[in-house]
Amino acid sequence: MNDTTTRPRWRRLLDGGHTWGSLQVSPTRYGITRYRLVVFPPGISADDRMLLRIWRAWPTWGMATFLILEILLVPALGAVAALWISATVFLGAGAVVMAMTAATRGDVRTMTAVRRAGIHDPLAAEQFVEFYGLAHELVEADCRLAAGEIQPVEHELLVWRVYDRMADATRTRV
């Protein structure tokens, strides 16, 4: 049986859909679409990937925790005490997750592309072509692994290639 079907649901949720990271497409107002590719350091454990995802989502879940604590504690303890406790939990949880990801957090590679409908921007078009190529390679590697065409070692090699190319891409733009 596949590892992804035997793990508990909460672990699958926290580990995400891709072992290599994430791909986000965000259409916004006025015809602007943002694309974001996040690639974790290849070879890290599932626990490290999960912690990185928790760290990257800290502003959202941390603020939700803060607000829930405020709602629950204000009637019981008063506004000032509730604020202190909520802020301490919010910042403390962030500090703990930050410390737990210290070894791998700096090695995460991120690439962003922005496209604007109706505007011809050669630099943005070039960046999007590069972004699309890298994202396509990662998704294709996942499909080939799921179909049994390649082994996990070959999949990781493909992720390493994209990971290294992302580093080269940021060096050439700087």
Rank of each mutant, 00 (worst) to 15 (best):
V74N: 05
I119K: 13
E154N: 05
G16T: 11
A64Q: 09
E156W: 07
M166Q: 01
S45C: 01
A141H: 01
A99Y: 11
I44H: 07
V129Y: 01
R12M: 12
G94I: 05
H136Y: 09
L145N: 07
D47F: 11
S45F: 04
S86P: 01
V89D: 00
V108I: 09
G21F: 00
H136N: 10
Y132M: 08
V162H: 03
T19M: 00
L13F: 15
R105W: 04
P75M: 08
L134S: 06
R161T: 13
L72V: 15
A117K: 13
I150T: 12
D168Y: 04
G17V: 01
T6Q: 14
A76K: 13
M98K: 12
A46P: 07
A79G: 14
R7A: 06
L72I: 13
T5I: 15
I150Y: 07
Y163R: 03
D168C: 04
L83N: 04
R36L: 05
A64I: 15
G92C: 05
R11G: 04
F40Q: 04
A95T: 12
L123W: 10
R109I: 07
L83R: 07
P75E: 14
L37Q: 05
E130N: 10
A135F: 06
D164E: 12
W84V: 15
P27N: 08
I119D: 10
R49N: 05
D142Q: 09
A79K: 12
V153N: 03
T101P: 04
G62L: 08
A93L: 14
L72D: 13
R165C: 04
G148K: 12
L91A: 15
W20T: 05
A79I: 10
V96K: 00
M100A: 15
L72H: 10
D168V: 07
T101N: 14
Y30F: 13
M111K: 08
G133C: 08
G31W: 02
L37K: 09
H155Q: 07
P8M: 02
P75Q: 11
F131G: 00
R11T: 10
E140P: 00
G43N: 12
W10C: 02
L73Q: 08
V159G: 05
H120P: 01
P27E: 06
A141C: 03
G118C: 06
E149A: 15
M100R: 13
R56V: 01
Y30I: 04
V129N: 02
L14V: 11
T19I: 03
H155A: 03
Y35R: 06
R29H: 12
Y132K: 09
V159M: 06
L73W: 09
P27H: 07
L77H: 08
P59A: 08
I85V: 14
V139Q: 11
D107W: 06
F40Y: 15
R173A: 12
T170F: 02
C143E: 13
R9A: 10
